[in-house]
């Protein structure tokens, strides 16, 4: 069962339509999950507040090695903190999420994604494909970056570290390519 974390604000239904999981904020359901999707809409602090009661369960599950997919804020919360506001993230990855400083911010719209490392998340997807972005904060390029997007700042548009997958764009809003990314995650064994 795939647990789609209910962050009280977000595009849960579109995601769940494809991954066919269970939208939940019940720690017992999350404990039973064999995959987790963390969709994110909202601000860093707001989302961290909203998952207060299940934060430890999510961290434990990620550390147990089950596949995790963070979407947008679900990528950002993997870090210790964010320039967006106070509060601690899940601290699965060390460092801080930065604010975009070039061009118009937020970064809104369809932008190209350059695949720089192989990841099963992008199987069947052409390099340079368009995905939909909607964010003001980003993870800098790092060892786990598998795809980048150049928006003046180089955005880690997708990352993978072992069982942890994360995308800055919204696959649930990115047409056929986005559906493929979600299916790729769903079908991971």
């Amino acid at each position: 069962m795939i647990a789609v974390i209910d962050t009280q604000a977000g595009n849960l239904f579109n995601i769940n339509k494809i991954v066919n999981g269970e939208i939940t904020r019940d720690p017992y359901v999350i404990e039973r999950a064999d995959k987790i999707v963390f969709p994110g809409v909202g601000s860093f602090s707001f989302v961290m507040d909203s998952i207060e009661g299940i934060k430890e369960t999510i961290i434990e599950k990620i550390k147990s090695g089950i596949p995790y997919l963070g979407i947008c804020l679900g990528l950002e919360v993997l870090y210790d903190s964010s320039e967006e506001g106070p509060g601690s993230g899940l601290s699965i990855l060390s460092g801080s999420i930065k604010k975009l400083t070039k061009n118009r911010v937020p970064h809104i719209g369809w932008d190209t994604v350059e695949l720089i490392k192989d990841s099963r998340l992008f199987s069947g997807i052409k390099n340079g494909s368009y995905f939909y972005f909607l964010h003001s904060y980003y993870a800098e390029r790092n060892d786990y970056t598998v795809a980048i997007t150049d928006y003046g700042n180089i955005i880690s548009s997708a990352m993978q570290k072992d069982n942890i997958y994360a995308v800055q764009f919204h696959p649930e809003k990115s047409g056929i390519n986005g559906i493929q990314v979600l299916k790729n995650f769903r079908d991971l064994i």
């Binding site: 604000a9 809409v41 909202g42 601000s43 602090s45 707001f46 804020l73 506001g85 937020p106 809104i108 909607l134 964010h135 003001s136």
Partner: peptide, 9 residues
């Protein structure tokens, strides 16, 4: 609203 749903939204 920007605090709760995020500025981008």
């Amino acid at each position: 609203a920007s605090y709760e749903i995020g500025s981008s939204n």
